[in-house]
């Protein structure tokens, strides 16, 4: 096994299974649907809230996608092979998260214009929302990868993983929605985007190390 063949098989697996992509996408649409139905369908509520609604939905569907990211590898023995391959486990984790990010986020971004429009989100500011998603979601994936690694061997790991990871998502959600809100009221939002990028970069550096450590401990 080398990094290239690993990346290729991860890519093939995710693209062929499609399940992660479709589930995340459906979940995303459903959560967004809940807000007009459950709270208020008027433009007066939805327009200012749309950034927050989209981000909550994104965070939840990412949690869904990330939660079981190593489950199959754990069950079919692939994790054991990663550990004994002599390759760097953090780097393998990094590649896996990266592929996962691509197959989940790209479809979300594709349906985003439609959903944003349904939430009365001003179309001129769509690029801001897309920027927050591109800069912020890597952090959500990388942080989630740690929780998933910690709970992969546990029978009821899903709820536990939510409890562990969701509080850590708060800053990303705050800064992302802050940027969107600032843009909506015509203020500068580059600061928030910079913070999002910083959080994502930090997560990108630290998370593969901690996830690798957790996988190793899980395989005990």
């Amino acid at each position: 096994m080398n990094y290239r063949s690993f990346l290729k098989s991860e890519w093939l697996t995710l693209v062929r299974r499609k399940q992660d992509t479709i589930n995340a996408l459906l979940f995303f649409v459903m959560v967004i649907l809940l807000f007009p139905l459950g709270v208020d369908p008027s433009k007066a509520f939805l327009e200012p809230a749309s950034g927050g609604i989209v981000w909550c939905a994104v965070a939840l569907s990412i949690l869904m996608a990330v939660e079981s990211m190593y489950k199959e590898d754990f069950n079919d023995g692939s994790l054991e092979q990663w550990l004994t391959s002599g390759l760097s486990l953090p780097y393998l984790v990094f590649l896996k998260v990266f592929v996962q990010w691509l197959v989940v986020i790209v479809p979300l971004l594709l349906v985003l214009p439609l959903l944003a429009n349904m939430l009365f989100f001003p179309i001129e500011q769509l690029m801001v929302m897309i920027s927050t998603l591109l800069l912020g979601t890597p952090a959500l994936f990388f942080i989630g990868a740690i929780g998933s690694a910690l709970t992969v061997s546990l029978r009821r790991g899903a709820v536990l993983m939510l409890l562990l990871i969701l509080p850590l998502y708060i800053p990303v959600i705050i800064f992302a929605t802050g940027a969107i809100r600032a843009a909506q009221s015509g203020m500068s939002y580059s600061g928030q985007l910079a913070i999002l990028a910083a959080i994502s970069l930090t997560a990108l550096v630290l998370s593969p190390l901690m996830a690798a450590l957790s996988i190793k401990a899980s395989m005990n």
Partner: peptide
């Protein structure tokens, strides 16, 4: 949630 002590120790340390 984790019964194995070595694993539990590692997990709480990471968290």
């Amino acid at each position: 949630a984790i019964e194995d002590r070595v694993f539990a120790d590692k997990a709480v340390a990471v968290v």
